[in-house]
Amino acid sequence: MIAILLGAIAASPWMRAALRYGAIALAVLLFLLSLRRFGERAGRLTERLETTEKAYDVQRQMLEAAARRPRDRDELVDRLRDGGF
């Protein structure tokens, strides 16, 4: 029954053209939607990368500060006397 109905619809040249253009429009719409999803995903990945870079930068600064700290009390006293802090 459905095959007969589709055969009758596809028999008309106008309906074939409408189906063809409808299929093209659907394909373009699906492509644009997938492109939008890809853009959103890329934006989220970029944001995650920026956040990770900031965290690594803060961690690097903390490690550099730890490397410059006084090793013992004598070095701390020397720095305080020299005004190195």
Rank of each mutant, 00 (worst) to 15 (best):
I2T: 13
I2E: 13
I2V: 14
A3Y: 13
A3W: 14
L5F: 08
A8H: 11
A8D: 10
A8N: 14
A8K: 14
I9V: 08
I9C: 05
I9T: 06
I9W: 10
A10S: 11
A11C: 12
S12A: 12
S12W: 03
P13T: 04
P13N: 05
W14T: 08
R16N: 00
R16D: 00
R16G: 01
R16Q: 02
A17D: 13
L19M: 02
L19F: 00
R20N: 08
R20T: 10
Y21H: 12
Y21L: 07
G22A: 00
A23M: 12
I24G: 05
A25L: 10
A25M: 08
A27R: 09
A27M: 02
V28F: 01
L29C: 06
L29I: 09
L29M: 07
L30F: 14
F31H: 08
L32W: 06
L32S: 08
L33A: 05
S34E: 12
R37P: 00
F38K: 15
F38G: 14
G39N: 09
E40K: 15
E40L: 14
R41M: 07
R41W: 08
A42Q: 06
A42G: 01
G43Y: 02
G43V: 01
T46E: 05
T46H: 09
E47W: 03
R48Y: 05
L49P: 00
T51Y: 08
T51Q: 15
T52H: 15
T52W: 15
T52L: 15
K54I: 02
K54L: 06
A55Y: 13
Y56D: 06
D57V: 07
D57I: 12
V58F: 09
V58G: 04
V58P: 02
V58N: 12
V58L: 08
Q59E: 13
Q61S: 12
M62G: 03
A65S: 11
A66W: 03
A66L: 13
A67L: 02
R68P: 04
R68C: 01
R69A: 08
R69W: 03
P70L: 13
P70N: 13
P70R: 11
P70A: 14
R71C: 01
R71L: 07
D72Y: 02
R73Y: 05
R73S: 11
D74C: 09
E75I: 07
V77H: 06
D78H: 12
D78W: 09
D82N: 10
D82Q: 13
G83A: 04
G83P: 02
F85T: 11
F85L: 15
